[in-house]
Design a protein around this nucleic acid. Structure first.
Lengths: 201, 201, 201, 201
DNA sequence: AATGAATGAGAATTCATTCAT
DNA sequence: AATGAATGAATTCTCATTCAT
């Protein structure tokens, strides 16, 4: 299994590189195979087709994200700290994976049927984790009990997405991590003050 | 010229429909030709190639936008009114052209070299018009003299873009025009109040 | 008629330029039309199709050649002089028309069905002229009576063709006219001396 | 490798047939594929594009020529004999491959940039072989030491080319092999006697 | 499991030719 | 006679996918 997974990982890593440089249609299976050091046919042993491989990228990356996130949250106490950490790690992760960021934010997320893909579904466990932290915040009194936690989660994740997307469109020229505070404050303090503000997503 | 332009318009209209339903690569010249009721070869009499046709869409649409906008601003006085009208018309335009909106915001805007295209360049005159209104607002005292008008414009247009993009990603389920006030207030009143807010784009 | 012919000439001149730079298939009617300052459709008023236009070039050029040749032979006496003049003019003509030379020698003459074309037929009157000179030479005693004048003509024209072709293949780097004597001598003196020599064409 | 080469050979053989009957532009990949009993796409696995396939023909044919020539020269002694054999084999080869002859002599050889093609480059080793024989002739005293062997080679190959070309233009009606002596004598004896003769190429 | 040769559908693009004006 | 917009057949080439080894 580790050996089997190794090859799959190899292919996905190659796919990330190729797809992020060229977009779905201009990327070729042949190039991915070359970069992964496997034969073209081998790819079809692990993935149904090109599209399947494409959407497997976020599935794998999200697993990676979750695992690492858990490590970072390990041993921390206090929802406030955890949320800060989460925001920081979210931005850190995309800062460190700008190629994947482009593919996910500017190509996949934007496609009409993204929500129907396995990629979208793979976000669920990670989204649940966010919900848990928010609930913890409510217990601690940091977040009002009457607040709709689903909307709050949507607000948080939506704004993070927006921050990353903006950064990509601007050419990744500034430091993503500089926005940690902005997110934290906008989401957790700005909410009360802005009447017409319905969340950025 | 009216006859000649007619055919070009016919093709562009067909292109808008096809490109917005399918994305650049899955759209075929053949389908566009069919929808425009012309031969495939005819398209190449008006456009250099598929990409040229693709990026001609915003060029034409932006012309249309500008012309109509002028009509709407005709006879109005007061920068404040003009800005409100502009915001309203911007949202109204994309509400009425959702297919074009998808193509522009989710496919073109997001592509790596968009700023190098003729589409991007075609925004210039329209962006200048916005600047004129802002300057008028400064003269009238509605906007502080020490404000950087370029940043203000960027803020306004960026937020409008954002509003439209969000709407598209959410499946065009709510009424875009419901956001007129939000934009106006965020851009022209929120600025002072939000310490950490650096503009959404 | 002069006006009508003018346009036809215009087109042929343009065709010569275009066809000689690019070969039949890479040359386009559109480019010829542009260069001739006429509409594409106009070409089809004068020529049945692209091929017809192509093979009209030698027809016209051969007329030009003949007319000019006549002028050069005017007032000359003595077959020997006339033959020398003919050789000189032949080489001079292609020296002055290298583009046409390429087309004729390296593209047309080499094509399988060249002898069936009107171009080939248009050589006839000019070939007769050569025959006349040879006959004159026989009368004057310069050429043996028992010599087959058709073979002699073939030898002469064939060798001239060869000289021009070689010059073209070598990149037109040396002066064609330097070969006048060689032709004259090979054809009119070498014949007796070379046992196995059956004429170069 | 034998299997792999087989398919490549299959395609080249088909290409020779098609290209020699129709010329480069009128020949289609589709027809070549049909004749070779492979899919069109298969051709592109072995050749970069149509032009590459076209110029691969002489590359392969020249290999074949060289290999066979070696066999024929095997065990022979005496430069004079070798040269006679070479001349014979050269003419024999094109007699047996008239389709290839047409393509090489009347289409490729004549094209403006032939010397830049890989086809032209593939002649080199074979040309060297000729040089070796000539040098051998010098050692044996058959060829004068003060003769420029490069010019002699050029003369020999040029005249052979010319003989074949003439034969093709005349419709392949007579026997090419009847010219063996003519070539041998012209090149190796005619040289001294003909003052103005500078070699036919 | 891995391979990679073979496939062939599919698409963009070109351009000679026509024909209504 | 002249035009040039419109045509659409024709062709090259690409590449995801399959399958025999």
């Amino acid at each position: 299994m580790p050996d089997k997974n190794l090859k799959k990982q190899l292919i996905i890593q190659a796919a990330i590189q190729v797809f992020s440089k060229k977009n779905f249609f201009n990327s070729t299976i042949s190039e991915i195979a070359q970069k992964a050091n496997v034969a073209e046919g081998t790819i079809y042993q692990y993935f149904k087709n090109k599209e399947d491989l494409f959407f497997s990228i976020p599935v794998e990356k999200t697993k990676e994200f979750s695992t690492e996130l858990d490590l970072h949250l390990q041993g921390m106490s206090g929802a406030s700290n955890k949320i800060r950490k989460f925001i920081w790690y979210y931005l850190y992760f995309f800062k460190m994976n700008p190629e994947y960021a482009r593919t996910l934010m500017l190509e996949m997320r934007v496609s009409k049927n993204f929500v129907k893909t396995k990629a979208y579904k793979s976000f669920r466990p990670f989204a649940n984790k966010v919900l848990d932290i928010i609930r913890e915040g409510q217990k601690e009194g940091m977040i009002r009990e009457d607040m709709n936690i689903y909307i709050l989660r949507q607000l948080l994740l939506g704004f993070l997405e927006h921050i990353v997307t903006r950064w990509l469109l601007k050419g990744e020229k500034y430091d993503l991590l500089g926005h940690c505070d902005e997110v934290y404050e906008l989401v957790f303090q700005g909410i009360g003050g802005m009447k017409n503000f319905q969340g950025l997503r």
